[in-house]
Simulated scan of single mutants.
Amino acid sequence: MKPNIAIIGAGLAGLTLARELAEHAHITLFEKARGLGGRMSTRRNDTHQWDHGAQFFTARTPAFQAMLAPFIDNGTVAEWQPNITTLSPNKAPFKRPWFEPHYVATPAMNRLLKDMAEGLDVRLQTRAAALVQQQEQWQLLDENEQLLGEYDWVISSAPLPQTQELLPAELLGNRLDAYQMLPCYALLLAVDDAALPVWDAASVNDSPVRWVAFNHRLPGRNHQAGAVVVHTTPEWSTTHLEDDQEQVKQQLIDTFCTLTGVSADAITQAQLHRWRYALSAEVEAPEAGFVLNPHHRLAACGDWCLGGRVEAAFTSARQLAEALQRQL
Rank of each mutant, 00 (worst) to 15 (best):
A266S: 15
L241P: 04
A285Y: 05
N293D: 15
R96F: 11
T238E: 13
F314E: 02
I8R: 04
L218S: 08
L17S: 01
G308F: 05
S280F: 00
T86K: 11
Q224R: 15
G149Y: 02
A270L: 05
W199P: 00
V209A: 06
R276Q: 14
H216I: 02
L124C: 01
H273S: 08
H216T: 09
V122M: 00
R326N: 13
T76G: 03
H24V: 10
N110W: 01
E145I: 05
R39W: 11
R221Y: 03
G302P: 04
Q125E: 15
I27K: 06
Q65G: 11
P286M: 07
L320H: 03
D243A: 12
V228I: 12
V228T: 04
Q65P: 00
Q65A: 12
R276I: 04
I27V: 14
H240K: 12
A25D: 12
P97G: 05
T47C: 06
Q125K: 15
A317G: 11
K2V: 11
P101K: 09
V209F: 01
H48I: 03
Q245C: 06
T76W: 01
E284D: 15
A63L: 11
L241R: 10
A105I: 06
Q164A: 12
S156G: 08
P159N: 11
Q164I: 07
Q146N: 13
F71V: 09
N110A: 10
A195L: 09
G11C: 04
R123K: 15
S203N: 14
L176H: 10
L160R: 02
S156A: 13
W275R: 04
I27A: 06
N174L: 07
L87A: 07
I27H: 08
G35A: 12
R39Y: 10
H48G: 05
R221L: 11
S157A: 15
A194H: 13
D51S: 09
L196F: 02
P3Y: 04
Q224Y: 13
L112V: 07
V198F: 07
H216D: 13
S237T: 11
I253M: 10
Y277Q: 10
L160I: 06
Q224G: 01
R175E: 13
W138D: 08
V104G: 07
I27G: 02
A63M: 06
N222H: 14
A321L: 09
V229A: 04
A201L: 12
H240F: 06
T85P: 03
A13W: 02
E143Y: 08
V191I: 15
